[in-house]
Amino acid sequence: MLEGKVKWSNSEKGFGFIEVEGQDDVFVHFSAIQGEGFKTLEEGQAVSFEIVEGNRGPQAANVTKEA
């Protein structure tokens, strides 16, 4: 699992980007967020995730919010 911080997200469009130190930003779709209820990410929020190869390149999977 990698750790990063949410660079920005748009809940209306359903995606955002995660900033990882020393690496390119990672695309995240809201379907990759683990948990119940409305899935949102806040700018600056710490997250853990895996990287998978998506249709348009690397993207985050199994995203969990850190406490």
Rank of each mutant, 00 (worst) to 15 (best):
M1H: 10
K7H: 05
A61S: 10
A60R: 00
E53G: 07
E12R: 13
Q23V: 07
F38Y: 12
Q34N: 13
G37T: 09
H29Q: 05
A46L: 14
F30W: 10
M1E: 05
A32E: 07
K7N: 03
E19Q: 13
W8Q: 00
W8D: 00
E19M: 13
L41Q: 01
M1G: 07
L41R: 03
V20K: 03
N62I: 05
G57H: 04
V20C: 07
V28N: 02
G37N: 08
D24Q: 13
E21S: 10
S48C: 13
G14S: 10
T64P: 01
P58M: 09
Q34E: 09
H29M: 07
Q45P: 00
L2A: 07
K13Q: 07
E3N: 15
G44N: 05
E43P: 15
A67N: 12
S11K: 15
T40L: 10
M1F: 13
A32M: 07
E42C: 15
M1R: 15
V20N: 02
G4S: 02
V63E: 03
E12D: 10
W8K: 00
R56G: 07
A60C: 04
G35P: 05
E36R: 09
H29R: 06
E53A: 12
E50M: 13
T64E: 06
S11N: 12
I18M: 02
V28D: 01
H29I: 06
I51Y: 04
S48P: 00
S48I: 13
L2T: 08
G54R: 06
K7M: 03
K65M: 13
E53R: 10
E42F: 12
V26F: 04
D24P: 15
E53N: 12
V52K: 08
E21G: 07
F27M: 02
K39R: 10
K65W: 11
G57A: 04
F38W: 12
A67T: 12
G44L: 02
I33F: 08
T64N: 10
L2I: 11
G4R: 02
F15Q: 02
N10E: 02
E50R: 12
K5F: 12
Q45N: 08
Q45K: 04
G57E: 01
E50Y: 14
F17E: 00
E66C: 15
K39D: 09
D24F: 10
K39H: 10
G54A: 06
K7Q: 02
R56D: 06
F15H: 02
G54C: 10
F15S: 01
V63T: 02
E19A: 14
G16Y: 10
V47S: 01
G22V: 01
N55L: 14
K5V: 14
A46E: 09
E50L: 11
I51R: 05
G54L: 07
T64H: 14
E42R: 13
E36V: 11
D24V: 11
A67Q: 12
V52M: 08
A67H: 12
V28P: 01
G37Y: 07
A32G: 05
K65R: 11
V63S: 02
V28T: 03
D25T: 04
F27S: 01
A46N: 11
K7I: 07
A61M: 11
T40F: 13
G54E: 04
V28G: 02
Q23H: 14
E42Y: 13
G44V: 02
E42V: 13
F49Y: 02
G14I: 06
I33H: 02
S11V: 14
T64Q: 12
Q34Y: 08
A32S: 10
T64I: 14
K13G: 08
E36G: 11
Q34L: 14
V20P: 01
L2G: 04
E19N: 06
E12A: 14
S48E: 06
F17S: 02
G37I: 08
K13Y: 08
R56H: 10
G14E: 06
Q34C: 13
E50C: 14
Q34R: 11
G22P: 02
F38V: 13
M1I: 13
Q45L: 07
F15P: 00
W8R: 00
E66A: 14
G57V: 02
G16K: 02
E50P: 01
G16M: 05
T40H: 10
E36C: 14
K13A: 09
E53H: 13
G44C: 07
G4K: 01
V28I: 07
S31Y: 06
E21N: 10
G16T: 03
A32R: 04
S9R: 11
G14A: 09
R56L: 09
F30E: 02
G35R: 00
A61C: 10
P58I: 09
Q23C: 12
N10P: 00
E66F: 15
F30L: 04
V52P: 01
A67G: 13
F49I: 01
G54S: 09
E21L: 11
Q45W: 10
I18W: 02
E42M: 12
F17H: 02
S31R: 05
K7P: 04
K5D: 00
D24Y: 09
Q23P: 03
G57C: 06
E43C: 15
P58Y: 09
G44E: 02
G14F: 10
E36M: 10
D25F: 05
V26P: 01
E12S: 13
D24E: 11
V26W: 03
S9W: 15
E12T: 12
I33P: 03
G37M: 08
G57L: 03
V52D: 02
E12Q: 13
E42P: 08
V63F: 02
A32L: 03
V47D: 00
F27V: 01
E19R: 13
H29L: 09
A61F: 10
E43A: 15
F27Q: 00
W8C: 08
S31M: 05
Q23K: 10
N55S: 14
N55Q: 12
V52A: 06
G22F: 05
F15D: 00
K13E: 05
N55V: 14
V47C: 04
G44P: 00
I51H: 01
E42L: 12
F38T: 12
H29Y: 08
R56Y: 13
Q45Y: 06
G35V: 06
Q59D: 01
I33Q: 03
D25G: 04
Q45D: 14
E50T: 13
E42S: 11
V26E: 00
E19G: 09
Q34H: 09
E12C: 15
V47F: 03
F27K: 02
S31V: 03
D25Q: 04
A60S: 03
N55D: 12
G57T: 03
E36N: 12
G57S: 05
Q45R: 06
V20Q: 03
G35M: 08
V20S: 05
Q59N: 04
R56V: 06
A60I: 03
F38L: 12
N55W: 15
G35Y: 06
H29N: 05
V6G: 02
W8G: 00
Q23Y: 14
Q45H: 06
V20F: 05
T64Y: 13
G4E: 01
A46Q: 12
S11I: 14
F38E: 13
S48M: 13
K7A: 04
G57W: 04
V20D: 00
F15Y: 14
E66T: 15
I51L: 11
D24H: 11
Q23D: 06
S11P: 14
D24M: 12
S11Q: 14
